[in-house]
Nucleic acid binder design. Structure first.
Length: 1001
RNA sequence: GGGUGCUUAGCUCAGUUGGUAGAGCGCUAGCCUUACAAGCUGGAUGUCGGCGGUUCGAGCCCGUCAGUACCCACCA
């Protein structure tokens, strides 16, 4: 590509789609199976809901995964990013049911088969949305291996796993109290219930004693469940009630009498200290009933209306309607003592928002705490999952998430895996007419099993499906083509051999329980392998105020809108469309218009990705700040324009590549290096740039190893902007200036060799930077690399290779050049001193002024030996002369005059009264007329600053315990500072005296 | 009740063996400087939440208090 083709400004939309399509078509994302490669890197995409759309959390999560994948791929590993989607049983079924509702049809009207067909239709319609959006983010997942949890092969593995676990006694069916969603009509797991504090009441109800006068008063938040009470309970040591234990009370509104029992579960200090026991409708009461062998009386139907166990007048009433009627009836009978306002935690289904009802039902469970092994002598799956982390085989990053993981697994109850839904993996269990249970991979096998057991009647398959997370838990091996016959290393299952365990799981903390722990349990048990080696846990993306993004708050950002930009009206429409509560629309609209008065500009994918990465500090949620996006779009533009600069100076120029190819220099061969030296003459600035590059490369490698994406981004940002653009390009401009006044042919020759070296450094450093940055910002780097790589000898002109196939840069520490670094450091300090002086003097940037630079040792007045400073690394007049042209350019100087005689310098200062700055032992004087008064003020300020520093340092050094106990290097450093401050103060005070004299005249 | 974070410039955040407090954005003064005004150059801005301890020395380590956020468990 020629310079002419690189637009003046960077336009992301133009390049993004083009490159993605090409990468995918070329198969660059495909899993690696190269036996010659020693490393393997594998990532599992946490499968998003197949019918979902991309949100900021996905964008963040996937940017991290893609960055890791691209990094390891370029580093030469066999690489697989395994994508796929989840059938998301409950969520998807709800969506389709709502669509049917809108047409006035229920799923029961359709019937199971027709309903499932409808869901598949919906999946076919909307199933590609999220994976298409992932592509917009640049996600380099191997789409040829994309899986869906309900694919035939994955479903088969689900069944096989279920059957095996059942055979091993680790899956069982039983009647238990489970969380029941009465609207959805299914059980849900503990994790799918969210409790939040809501305003309610505490009803104080009198239970008359069966014998004699009096009553006990019970406080309850759920008066309607009174009909299912089987006892009253008091604390056995409660003196108020002790004597009543063993007596009976009459259950109000019912003909039953129930006993009074004692149990230490009761808190004597809360309410009346007397509790009703309703084991069929409360988890704690259920446990009490088990302890006391009490009966269970369920008074609710599965849709939470009162059933035939309730007195006739209540039957058929909804639980909340029944509550009102019961309270009214109690009041009428004088049994309602009082009603108090009371805040309590209400459990709701996380998908439906419906109040969850503990319900006694038959369900399937995974026995997570049951010993495994044929003889029952092996640890439970939960214990094994704990062990994988305890031994360090699986490592959490950041490490403190281990606590969360351990705590959960240590308190784990059996996992209810059956759901009374239609969309999902149907449970492979068949029932005989007498309740016989046959679990098998298919009906034929079940029939055979039944026959063997002596049952020859009809079989009915269990209508229930499995919890979505059951199939998700198998994802690490089900996506890799697992079969029960797999033995590791047998070459029959190459993907499993290479990619199980995967390298790292990248996830938010919210699914450690849902997914991470369950993957560890089931993958370990089924395959004997851990599912992944590292778990990188990242934070949640929040809005600018730190609020969770949610539809109802109307603060959701769509990553695609940040990439493409969106008009205000469209954004408002999007945020207010389809609200559960349409009343919020006005407020959301107002806030949106206030926050984004002109909509959201298009930042492009690279800027968005860079923003995510630079915000990815460990252990922190992320307040997403659009200003950062803006800044990183500017960064992409900076890189773009730096490339324009390099191309402008290097395209069609002699870069010395013929004698000295990129590869041979990389190899560090002496022969190549000597061939180079005849053509190339690298300046200290060139060597400094190369040296800085090595340091950044080493830093990036370290940060990748530690998953510090924020620091990777920061390192690259600083390398590009500060080091390469702000300094090296400016230095290179000086080196590339056409010098027409060279006298001898030898000087001309030397100039050519030097400029050739500079161009070469420009091109090769830029080319390395592009590769270094590619995993973070893939699109702009690819686009620019196409233009730069041929110049750098990395790519043959006219070929179609990609930066994706180029190797990742690694630091060559032998190229670190401390001497050149010291010289550039000195040059920078001199430039800063000039600029600072100019600023203080309020000189126009357009005005070029002469500089007189005194480099004689000016410390004669000090009896201390000047400690070594960077200045002393430049020793010869020739070196000083070498710095002059750079300083002239960087400091906007018309000329640089060097003085080696301090006295002479001081005379010049005295005669002109010009401002002087200090830079280590060098002194700089700008030859400009200054106002003596303002110069005095400036000097006083500077002297005061130095005196303050000086006294701090003196204080330290006069402290004997400091000099005695601090390390020698630290003491030495303080002594050096002291000397420097003293040395600097001398000329400043002299200068001040001079200016004050002028002022008086 | 149990657990985990966080508190550093106006805002968002870095600060990894304890040794001179940083970045971006914003603010401000000035610049169309031959890659970039999505830019360049200069400047201002901090009792590093409070208190106590360890140490020659603490933003960092320890204790404690306060504020704040989240996770788990739910006293009916």
């Amino acid at each position: 590509m020629k310079l002419a083709e690189l637009a003046k400004s960077f336009d992301p939309s133009d390049i993004e789609r083009r490159w993605y399509a090409l990468w995918e078509a070329q198969g660059y994302f495909n899993a690696g199976f190269d036996p010659a490669k020693t490393e393997a890197f594998c990532l599992l995409l946490p499968p998003p809901n197949v019918t979902g759309t991309l949100h900021m959390g996905h964008g963040f999560n996937q940017t991290i995964m893609d960055t890791l994948t691209r990094y390891h791929r370029m580093r030469g590993a066999n690489t697989l990013w395994q994508p796929g989607t989840d059938h998301a049983g409950i969520a998807t079924q709800i969506v389709v049911e709502r669509q049917l509702d809108a047409q006035g049809v229920s799923r029961h009207d359709l019937g199971r088969a027709a309903f499932i067909d409808k869901v598949w239709e919906w999946k076919a319609y909307s199933g590609g949305t999220i994976t298409q959006q992932m592509r917009r983010l640049g996600a380099s997942a191997d789409w040829t291996r994309e899986r869906f949890t309900m694919d035939a092969d994955l479903s088969r593995i689900v069944t096989q796993t279920f059957v095996r676990l059942h055979r091993e006694g680790l899956i069982y069916r039983g009647q238990r109290l489970v969380n029941w969603d009465p609207v959805l009509g299914t059980a849900v797991s503990d994790l799918e219930v969210v409790s939040s504090e809501e305003a309610g009441h505490l009803w104080h109800i009198r239970y008359p004693l069966s014998e004699g006068e009096g009553h006990l008063t019970v406080a309850t938040t759920r008066p309607e469940t009174l009909l299912g009470d089987v006892a009253l309970m008091v604390h056995p040591e409660d003196e108020r009630y002790q004597h009543l234990i063993g007596k009976q009370v009459r259950l109000p509104l019912s003909e039953r009498t129930i006993p009074i029992i004692g149990d230490t579960y009761v808190d004597r200090t809360f309410a009346t200290g007397c509790v009703k026991v309703t084991p069929a409708h409360d988890f704690n009461d259920y446990a009490v009933a088990q302890r006391h062998a009490l009966p269970l009386i369920s008074i609710l139907t599965l849709s939470a209306t009162l059933n035939e166990q309730a007195p006739e007048s209540y039957r058929g009433l909804d639980r909340f309607v029944a509550r009102q009627k019961i309270v009214a009836d109690l009041e009428a009978q004088g049994l309602l003592e009082k009603v108090e306002a009371h805040k309590l935690n209400i459990p709701r289904g996380d998908r439906t928002g419906v109040v969850i009802e503990p319900m006694l039902t038959d369900q399937w469970f995974v026995a997570v705490n049951k010993a495994t092994g044929a003889a029952g002598d092996q640890p439970s799956i939960a214990a094994k999952a704990l062990a994988c982390v305890a031994t360090g085989e699986i490592e959490f990053v950041p490490g403190n998430w281990v606590n969360t993981y351990n705590q959960w697994l240590n308190n784990l109850q059996d996992w209810c895996i059956s759901r009374q839904l239609w969309w999902g993996h149907q449970i492979p269990a068949w029932y005989g007419s007498g309740g016989e249970i046959f679990v098998a991979e298919d009906e034929a096998t079940a029939t055979t099993q039944a026959a063997a057991a002596g049952y020859h009647g009809a079989l009915t398959r269990d209508p229930d499906v499995l919890d979505t997370w059951f199939s998700s838990a198998l994802w690490p091996f089900s996506t890799l083509g697992w079969t029960p016959e797999w033995t590791p290393g047998s070459n029959t299952h190459p993907a499993l051999d290479l990619y199980l365990p995967s390298t790292v799981l990248v996830t938010g903390f919210d699914i450690i329980f849902f997914w991470v722990a369950r993957m560890v349990m089931l993958t370990e048990h089924m395959t004997g392998k851990i599912p992944f080696k590292h778990v990188y846990v990242h934070g949640l993306i929040r809005d600018a105020e730190g609020q969770k993004m949610s539809k109802s708050k109307g603060n959701v950002l769509d990553p695609i809108d940040l990439i493409d930009g969106i008009e205000l009206d469209a954004l408002v429409e999007k945020r207010t469309r389809g609200l559960m509560n349409p009343k919020q629309a006005a407020q959301i609209e107002q806030r949106t218009r206030q926050e984004f008065p002109s909509g959201i500009p298009a930042f492009g994918t690279d800027a968005l990705r860079f923003t995510f990465l630079s915000l990815a500090s460990p252990g922190r949620d992320i307040k997403f700040d659009l200003n950062r996006c803006d800044g990183y779009r500017n960064f992409c533009n900076k890189l773009w324009n730096a490339t324009r600069f390099v191309l402008m100076h290097c395209a069609d120029q002699d870069l010395g590549l013929d004698a000295c190819t990129a590869q041979t220099v990389d190899a560090g061969s002496d022969a190549a290096a000597s061939a180079c030296s005849t053509q190339l003459s690298f300046s200290f600035a060139d060597r400094w740039m190369v040296s800085q590059l090595q340091r950044s490369e080493a830093a990036v490698a370290k940060h990748f190893a530690e998953y510090r994406f924020d620091l990777i981004a920061q390192t690259i940002y600083e390398l590009v902007w500060d080091t390469f653009c702000d300094w090296y390009l400016e230095l290179a401009k000086v080196q590339l200036q056409a010098n027409t006044e060279l006298a001898s042919p030898a000087e001309v020759e030397q100039r050519q060799r030097s400029q050739r070296a500079t161009r070469r450094t420009l091109v090769r450093v830029l080319e390395s930077i592009l590769r270094l940055a590619h995993p973070l910002i893939p699109f702009v780097t690819e686009e620019l690399w196409q233009a730069v790589a041929p110049l750098a000898g990395r790519q043959q002109a006219g070929t179609t290779s990609s930066i994706m196939q180029a190797p990742y840069p690694t630091a060559q520490l032998e190229k670190i050049d401390e001497a050149s670094e010291a010289r550039v450091q000195q040059l920078k300090e001199l430039a800063y001193a000039c600029r600072h002086l100019r600023g203080e003097m309020k000189l126009s940037p357009a005005l070029k002024v002469p500089l007189i630079l005194c480099v004689a040792p000016a410390l004669a007045a000090s009896d201390k030996t000047p400690a070594e400073s960077v200045t002393e690394s430049v020793t010869t007049p020739a070196d000083w002369l070498g710095l002059a042209p750079y300083l002239q350019a960087l400091g906007k100087l018309s000329s640089v005059e060097l003085l080696y005689d301090a006295q002479q310098f001081e005379q010049r200062v005295a005669s002109s009264g010009a401002p002087v700055a200090l830079c280590a032992s060098a002194r700089l004087m700008l030859q400009v007329e200054v106002d003596a008064a303002s110069e005095c003020a400036r000097l006083l300020k500077e002297i005061a600053r130095l005196e303050n520093e000086l006294s701090k340092t003196q204080g330290k050094l006069s402290n004997e315990s400091f000099t005695a106990r601090a390390p020698a290097a630290v003491v030495e450093q303080e002594q050096k500072r002291l000397a420097d401050f003293q040395a600097q103060l001398i000329p400043l005070r002299e200068q001040l005296r001079l200016q004050q004299t002028r002022l008086q005249q």
